[in-house]
Design a protein around this nucleic acid. Structure first.
Lengths: 336, 336
DNA sequence: ATGAAAGCGCTAACAG
DNA sequence: CTGTTAGCGCTTTCAT
């Protein structure tokens, strides 16, 4: 019935009794259109069920009104939520947001960037799993549209939004140290990418400043590797850690598993701080003290930067830093 | 340097010393092009770093080579993986796959479908959170391209890929009953959508057939609601259940939480079968017996159906059923 | 097998 | 403020 896809701007113009150009201007809220004319055109469009043809528009205007995201992992709540929020915000501005998950494989990431280029995306936001792949870096450097890099140490002359792992980890360590903990077990992701690298460095520095040793550490191979066995082993000795700082979702749940297996209760036998806040931390009983990113702030920052660059802002590339907040809940107490 | 985006098919044709039309035919592997000509054109394209303009192509050919997915939740491992696999498969066929997450809100779902229509997507696959919203259904019915519905009871004349919850739940119940369990606690999602509805029905039927009562059930408000308190309450009595069948990821982890709090070990004190297989089930210690969907089969089915319809297959709409497999691991044993 | 030409639907530049 | 016109880059007739 609606026969969508058949009605062109010509039909709208005819029905509104104006020229094609005027119809276009009216619908795009261009300056210099009489309010009355605009109303007439809009009414005609509505009555006809007019839907603009995105391809024609992109071809002519050289803007696809498409934004792309390249992340490693869709299941990661951080990225899933970032994508959701970004999508909402960009939709308000008339953009459609794509996402591509690479599982961290460099070849996939390169292909995705290439596809993005062919499709003429207006901008992309990337957090690739790989910070050093030459191919990917070249593709990114040559990318014909603005890029925002999220929490990766890659230098391609693009704007970046970076997380303040340093302050976050320091806050966690000093909270725990203040509670009286002296043996704190870090369970962090591998160091081949910015978050892992920075967390490890910050942790070591903070511990050193607090005069504490770091005899043991658990480093999952990937951000999603289970660490059950490693955590069990690390907690086996007589001088076991009395507190842990644990990253992520998968890693966190397998660490929790290990505690359960060892018969260690949180927080009585083990204090715990999670890096990143999600359903896993809030739904846990007791709710977990966590390092939470200011997600809304981050999305606003990314979106604003994206929009500004799309609109032609030509200033120097800029780095912005997003803070972590230590949300204190029930998973920490002084050691026994 | 590469100056991408500037080289058009004209440049390629000129360099190859052929006409524009021939260049197009050569690159699209159209019939009736001399092998030599094709080679020349392809070489020219490569040397120039030619990238076809997707918008122009879409405008002229009336095909965007874009596929859309409309799911409720990106964090849900099932959808995240379905999307990943589908994307891989469709990329091989030259399509880019978009995804949109609605969080189950009908208005968002309607807007997403509308956007998909404007963008001229070649096909969409949908698993909306809402099966009855009139607006959404109308939009879907009028959608100008093929649709594949995933596990939803919506009748819009589209092909569907449905999960066999009935056989799956029955297999789980009869396995547990065979082990000697008589009190089995179901922890299922709400019944306002196909999976929840079918699971509940199948569970009741299977229990009745096994001659077992269902005194208690836990039904989270949404597929992601925590059920800690409800599970604790349900397991409080003297005749507590000795086995549970639990859905999802979030629900599952909060149920596991509840067991830990109650001091109930799996499987010694409580047998447990998870609906859906993910890192949560495989990484748990002990690994959880789970109802696993044949994901590869599902993706192949969806992709084939999509492709066939895009290519004009005009047969009657079809329903396909995907089986669940009961993967036996360490979380079940006879009741004490 | 290839070349020439038309035109997809739209926006932007230029007149009036 | 509005009408007219010229393409955007490509695929697809229609000739040859």
């Amino acid at each position: 019935m609606t026969e969508s896809g058949k009605i062109t701007i010509r039909d709208v113009a005819r029905r509104a009794g104006v020229s094609l150009g005027t119809a276009s201007r009216a619908m795009n809220a261009a300056p210099g259109v009489m309010a009355r004319t605009r109303a007439t055109v809009e009414a005609a469009a509505r009555e006809l069920g007019y839907q603009p043809n995105a391809a024609a528009r992109a071809l002519r205007s050289r803007s696809s009104r498409l934004i792309g995201c390249l992340f490693t992992d869709l299941e990661n709540p951080l990225y899933a939520r970032l994508y959701n929020s970004l999508q909402d915000r960009m939709a308000e501005e008339g953009f459609v947001t794509l996402i591509n998950a690479s599982s961290g494989r460099a070849d996939r990431e390169s292909r995705a960037v290439q596809t993005f280029a062919e499709r003429g995306l207006d901008a992309i936001v990337v957090a690739p799993g790989n910070e050093t792949d030459a191919d990917l870096l070249a593709l990114l450097r040559d990318f014909p549209a603005p890029i925002v890099v999220v929490d990766r140490d890659i230098e391609i002359g693009a704007d970046r939004v970076l997380f303040d792992h340093d302050a976050g980890i320091r806050a966690a360590v000093s909270y725990l140290a203040g509670l009286g903990h002296r043996r704190i077990l870090p369970v962090f992701s591998p160091i081949d990418t910015r978050p892992g690298r920075m967390r490890s460095t910050a942790f070591d520095a903070a511990m050193a400043e607090a005069g504490l040793d770091v005899p043991l550490r658990v480093a999952p191979d990937t951000p999603n590797s289970p660490v059950f066995a490693e955590v069990c082993a690390a907690l086996a000795g007589p001088d076991r850690a009395t507190a842990m700082i644990v990253q992520g979702t998968h890693v966190l749940s397998s660490a929790l598993n290990a505690l359960a297996r060892l018969g260690l209760r949180v927080p009585e036998d083990m204090s715990l701080i999670a890096i990143g806040d999600s359903a896993t931390t809030t739904d846990h009983v007791p709710a977990l003290t966590a390092l939470r990113l200011d997600r809304d702030g981050m999305v606003a920052l990314i979106a604003d930067r994206l929009l500004a660059r799309i609109r032609g802002l030509d200033g120097p590339r800029q780095d912005d830093v997003i803070a972590y907040e230590l949300v204190k809940r029930g998973s920490c107490m002084p050691p026994a």
